[in-house]
């Protein structure tokens, strides 16, 4: 089995990992103890594993960890008391919580990068994640509330 050591930049820290080059980013960050990104479908459909790579939402089950060497990775553990996290709590935008980290990462990118997002943009971005508890309405409300705060 071919293994190699890589250095990843995750949440502002340098993290070393010994990996197979075929390992996905999701497997490696979870191996490093960052278990917020969740294995769901492992097929790029559900979005539970979403992280940011250079501020762009990425499904970490669909990217090789070795591809991200030299790039900035942000996981849910790297977000602390952000507006979107508070909004998810205030709007009750979850039930079981399994999909929540993925939704929060995607919604964080949306609300920080597209402060003028219209309904179509919100819909297009949120289509990337699936919630089996069907909290979609509350999740959209959380996003809208953060965007509204930014416009004040």
């Amino acid at each position: 089995m071919m293994k190699c050591e890589i250095i990843l930049h995750i949440n502002g820290e340098r993290r070393s990992a010994v990996i197979r080059q075929a390992d996905t980013l999701l497997m490696v960050i979870r191996y490093l103890g960052l278990t917020g990104a969740k294995p769901g479908c492992l097929n790029g459909d559900c979005g539970a594993c979403t992280v940011l790579v250079n501020d762009t939402p990425i499904k970490s089950c669909m990217m090789l960890a070795i591809e991200t060497v030299g790039q900035e990775i942000t996981t849910i553990e790297g977000l602390r008391d952000t507006a979107i996290q508070r909004a998810f709590v205030e709007q009750f935008a979850f039930q079981c919580g399994y999909c929540t980290p993925g939704f929060v990462m995607n919604a964080y990118a949306l609300t920080t990068q597209k402060p003028d997002a219209d309904e179509e943009t919100i819909r297009k971005w949120l289509e990337s994640n699936i919630c089996r508890c069907t909290s979609y309405h509350e999740i959209e409300q959380a996003v809208r509330s953060v965007l509204a705060q930014k416009k004040r």
Binding site: G44, G47, T50, T56, P57, I58, M62, N106, W125, E127
Partner: peptide, 9 residues
């Protein structure tokens, strides 16, 4: 094609 996050890749 696919969804927004997938299209980032």
């Amino acid at each position: 094609v696919a969804d927004r996050t997938a299209r980032n890749q």
